[in-house]
Simulated assay, not measured.
Amino acid sequence: MTTDIIELRHNLHKYPEVSNNEYKTSERILNFINTFSPNEIVNLSKTGKAFIFKGRKPGKTVIFRAELDALPIAEKSSLVYSSVNSDVAHVCGHDGHMAILAGLAQKIAKERPQYGKVVLLFQPAEEVEQGAKDVVENPGFKAINPDFIFALHNIPGIEKHRIVMKNGSFSAASKGMTVKLFGKTSHAAEPENGISPANAISKIISQLHQLRDNKNLFKDLSLLTIIHIRLGEISFGTSPGYAEIRITLRSFENEDMDTLTTHSENIIKEVAKTEDLKYEISYSEVFPASINDDECLGFVKQSARQNNLKIELIEKPFKWSEDFGYFSKDFKTCLFGLGAGENQAPLHNPDYDFPDDIIETGINLFYSIYKKINF
């Protein structure tokens, strides 16, 4: 790894951009990767880029993916390259993930594929879920039609350079559910003349918690987290006629998410009917579970051993979600963890900074996978 990879990472960290606004970030990546003469560049969604290196003979098409976006969080650090953009920071490590792919491009340029194609995908908007979804639905991506897709995520709290893997689901499915309840306002002195959603909120929350605790319905962990409630207006003279409940649904398995969603909707429908309320249900930030394919996982294991890296096989998926699951729905994929250090600040914390000394580990692991498939 050359020093310009670390300089690139610091530069990306200094000028972070939030989801779907990664225009300058995308431009920096384009300028850097262009120096390695990819055979083709495909624009995906608003800011996404796919850099394609073609082999001389037919073979497998492999994608390595990194994320472009930062978070709307104010950084708290004394780094010389700390964020100059107010209330935006790379505190999830996407700057490091991009640097790893840039380093991979550097190595591929020196030893181009013999077979098939290698694609370095810089994906927008991972933090808000729609990035991978937009990419998968893009005609340019459909034309690439990959055989395998690989991605890594740094994991604070795990020994540096350790590779964290799991068969099947690696990270949880999640979605944000918004429930709107429509009744009828009235004077607070005459609540009987209105239809208040207050009692419905109480019933919905109670029944959702009972659903969450019903272990017989689910194969593995399923969670319902009430994150926000709004009832009426702040007016002591008015009995409310409108309410909103916002709930995060989370499960380790996509099948359990379907069950959780169906039962939650049925609870809301029945309570609304009983309380004489109209209702609306909508969803946002929908992340499928990221499912690892056995063949892809095998490539990662072999490459980790080849690089003398410690491997940790976890029993349960991570509770956090990743939009990489949109790739898993239609393609053979593997998402794995790269230890970022036991004393490293947690992801999404204001003082988080990606450790430069694990960049080379990520590059070498991806490069070994590439060598196994495209040579």
Rank of each mutant, 00 (worst) to 15 (best):
A200S: 08
F252E: 02
I201A: 09
N216K: 02
H228Y: 14
K215W: 08
I204Q: 00
L221C: 13
M257D: 02
I205M: 03
R246K: 13
Q207K: 13
L249E: 12
S206H: 02
T274R: 05
N266L: 03
L260S: 10
G241V: 13
T225N: 12
T248Y: 04
D258S: 13
D220E: 10
S235F: 11
G241K: 14
F236Y: 07
D213R: 10
I247D: 00
T262W: 10
Q207P: 04
Y242A: 10
K219P: 08
H209G: 01
K273L: 15
E253K: 14
D256F: 15
Y279K: 00
I245M: 15
Y242R: 03
G232Q: 11
T248K: 03
R212Y: 10
D213H: 12
Q207E: 15
R250P: 01
L211N: 05
G241L: 15
K269S: 12
T248M: 12
T248A: 09
A200K: 02
Q207L: 15
I247F: 00
K215M: 09
E255M: 06
H228Q: 11
G237V: 08
I247V: 08
I245D: 06
L277E: 04
L224E: 08
Y279S: 00
V271W: 11
K269H: 14
S206R: 02
D220V: 00
R212H: 12
E275I: 11
S202T: 09
I247E: 03
K219T: 09
I204A: 04
Y242T: 00
P240A: 08
S239Q: 14
A200D: 01
I245H: 11
L217H: 02
G232K: 03
I204S: 01
T225M: 06
F218M: 07
L260M: 09
E265G: 06
L231R: 02
D213C: 07
N216L: 11
F236P: 01
V271S: 05
Q207I: 08
E270S: 06
L217E: 01
F218S: 02
P240C: 12
N254T: 03
T261Q: 02
K215T: 06
T274L: 07
I229L: 15
T261N: 01
L260K: 06
L217R: 02
S251Y: 14
T238L: 12
I247N: 00
E244S: 08
L223R: 04
K203S: 03
A200M: 03
S251G: 03
V271C: 05
F218A: 06
R212E: 14
A243F: 13
R250H: 11
T238V: 13
S264T: 13
G232D: 06
L277Q: 04
T259P: 02
T261Y: 01
N266D: 01
S206Y: 05
G241R: 12
K219V: 14
F236R: 03
Y242C: 01
T274Q: 04
E275T: 10
I201R: 11
E265S: 12
E233T: 00
D276I: 08
S251F: 09
F236I: 01
T259K: 15
S251V: 05
P240Y: 14
K278T: 07
F252W: 08
N214H: 12
T261W: 04
A243G: 07
H209Y: 11
H228P: 04
Y242W: 06
S264M: 05
Q210L: 14
M257L: 10
E280T: 05
E244D: 09
N214W: 04
N254S: 04
